[in-house]
Amino acid sequence: MKDYDEKEVLLQLQEPSTRRKAFEAIVRHYSSQLYWQIRRIVIGHDDANDLLQNTFIKAWMNIEYFRGDAKMSTWLYRIALNECLTFMSRRSQTLPLDEMAETKAEELVADQYFTGDEVQLLLQKALLTLPDKQRMVFNLRYFDEMSYDEMSQIFGTTVGALKSSYHIAVKKVEDYVKRHSK
């Protein structure tokens, strides 16, 4: 959003009287990018919508703990991805990874909000075979071209470990796509 001034919003956020207004600006600015991250992980729109709401509610309930020295986007991404991991781990308690990948792939085919072609469906199926955290790393780097430094702050992992994780993910996805391409 063009009229979003992070410095100004963060100043308003420090004042209890303008905090809610500032938070509204934050929600308006970040909801779209966070939504797409969450959606790529959980696949379904309804789940993504619930998790996005939980992310912002959690951020609001802990807003006084946000330190101005970190970027707001980093803080929000961290909350959102933790929400996703919790959600997915709850799901994986009932289904093993390969079965879950199949279920999610079926969901994708039936999803009215998935409009990808055959190749894009193949890519999504390949991504569903990755462990959740590796899939997050892949999504942030491949689709959003996020820097490793920022990812390092979000995941609390070293740049080296992230590079290695991304490299392995790319290799796995590429192999899957090659194997399943007609």
Binding site: W36, Y113, T115, G116, Q120, L122, L123, F143, V177, S181
Partner: peptide, 9 residues
């Protein structure tokens, strides 16, 4: 092969 296009709506 697949591009970066977002297939979700």
């Amino acid at each position: 092969k697949c591009g970066r296009e977002n297939p979700f709506k």
